[in-house]
């Protein structure tokens, strides 16, 4: 039974690992930290897995655990030196056709998002993952109205970062 549980879990996580990687890339700055956070999220997911009833999609359930781990439970295991080149793993820009202006714009946007605080990043992450405000508010434990207000503030913040 537990072997089967283990197998199901690993299979599900393997095919949905992209979500966890995105969270890790958003919240960490180098490869070691990325791996470290990925592992912690995996452990937390696995510990909570017996409570996963399958009434929600595995991926939906993952968002909450992954974000909770990143903004609340995770603590860097050793002090990491912040280097100037902190974009060793960065988002790969995938513009449909090669468009230098668009690519540059996207690079700047990703950089700006990485400068946000932990909570703002969580909101942006859920927004980018196409979650609606009701899901965002449920995941973070704030009201829907406040989630909207916050999202607008974040847009302003990003604007300030991009056009100082």
């Amino acid at each position: 039974m537990s072997k089967e549980l283990e197998h199901n879990f690993v299979t599900e996580l393997e095919s949905n690992q992209n979500i966890v990687h995105k969270v890790c890339t958003l919240y960490t700055n180098d490869r070691d930290a990325h791996n470290d956070l990925f592992q912690e999220i995996t452990i937390q997911l696995w510990k909570a897995y017996p409570k996963f009833r399958g009434d929600a999609k595995f991926s939906t359930w993952m968002y909450r655990v992954a974000l909770n781990t990143a903004i609340t439970l995770y603590r860097k295991s050793k002090k990491r030196v912040k280097t100037l080149h902190d974009d060793t793993i960065f988002f790969k820009i995938k513009a449909d056709e090669y468009d230098p202006t668009e690519e540059e714009q996207l690079t700047l946007m990703y950089k700006a998002v990485k400068q946000l605080n932990d909570i703002d990043k969580a909101l942006v992450f859920l927004f980018l993952e196409d979650k609606n405000y009701s899901e965002i508010s449920e995941t973070l434990g704030i009201s829907e109205v406040n989630a909207r207000v916050k999202m607008n503030r974040i847009k302003n913040k990003l604007r300030t970062i991009l056009n100082p």
Partner: peptide
Amino acid sequence: ELELLKKDWQKQDVVHPKLSY
């Protein structure tokens, strides 16, 4: 710009080496 980012984000694949089973 945020919508543009969203479009790009949805296409994001694992930038990190994909982990095996």
